[in-house]
Design a protein around this nucleic acid. Sequence first.
DNA 1: GACCAACTGGT
DNA 2: ACCAGT
DNA 3: GGTC
Length: 341
Amino acid sequence: MGDEQRCLAYSTAAATLKSLPFTVTTMSQIVDLKGLGSGHCLKVLQETLDTGYCREVVSKRDSDKYKSIKSLTGVYGIGNSVAEKLYTSCNITSVSDIITSWGRLALNDERIKYGVAYYEDLNTPVTRETAERIQGVVRRELDQVTQGYKLELMGGYRRGKSSGHDVDLLVCCGSNDEDGGSTGGVVGSGGSAGGVGLATVSCFIQLISSFSNYKYFFLQAAYRKQSDRVSSMDNYEKCVCILKCPLQDDWTPDPMEDIQTDVSSLVTSGQNGDRGWRATRVDLVYVPQHQWPYAVLGWSGSKLFLRLLRRYASSTLGLVLTSHGLWNYCKRKLSSTLQGR
DNA sequence: GACCAACTGGT
DNA sequence: ACCAGT
DNA sequence: GGTC
Ligand SMILES: Cc1cn([C@H]2C[C@H](O)[C@@H](COP(=O)(O)OP(=O)(O)OP(=O)(O)O)O2)c(=O)[nH]c1=O
Ligand SMILES: [Mg+2]
């Protein structure tokens, strides 16, 4: 049921107001703005301007259900659907409820374990300073396996934000790494990478391997379509992980530290602020050089901007815009040098 | 009343 | 197909 | 929920 679309409508309305160069004080300033419509949004705004708040907003915001769902979806890996079920069918209202009732809830998604164990860390804003520290960690790992690469901060930071919910990094390998050709150990989905240390292995796989070597947490890896692979080994396009971000410059991960796999040990080891690191969500995206501009566009956001831009590409230009390229519907990549627009 | 971005991975 | 995520 |  089109909740996603209603969310889109609210986002557009909010962005419309945010874009105004002045503080809104009267309805006449906003009634004719595109994106606000003539219904719900205006009603909320009218009441807010008249009385300082909107009864519907306040009652929704302060309702027990809203507060519970908000806490539950704050767990990485729990979305609206599961949160709703936990709340209505299991009387679960908080993360501590989840921990207490873990055994009977059958939450199978591996991410939820980490989401619960590092709930506080993962809901603490990541400062730009932290993001740059992570970038430094990644840069030093990359320097050991390749050269001539590009590595840039993406997402909110690239748009000038000073904090965010994660660190988005875009990597583009140097020309030496493009098309290695040789095949080697296959990297299994979801965790330990094999065949580490071979010169022919893609720098991205080596990078990810260094994370598991160092006992960082590894969550998920996405594959790249065969046709887009830079080399035969190089089948990862994205790595979604949680890294231990050093709190001081001199901290290095302890290779002896075991990775905990059950929630209770994760939760206990996740507590305690005094551990020299903070759990940080990191997205690493790896693209071949010819896709770099599309990847920069696609990973800079914002989410709303991308949706509007892609809608324009599709409905006005008749093209498909993704983070890999600009295509026509027959799946032929548009040669932008020939089609100069 | 149709349309609303485009995609991947886990179950 | 559904859910969660980018 | 807003736009066309
Ligand atoms: C969430 C989301 C992100 N993206 C892209 C654009 C985002 O800028 C990029 C990174 O995703 P996010 O990290 O979720 O977005 P962000 O970096 O803008 O926000 P924050 O500062 O809170 O981290 O991925 C999508 O294309 N679609 C989506 O639905
Ligand atoms: Mg981000």
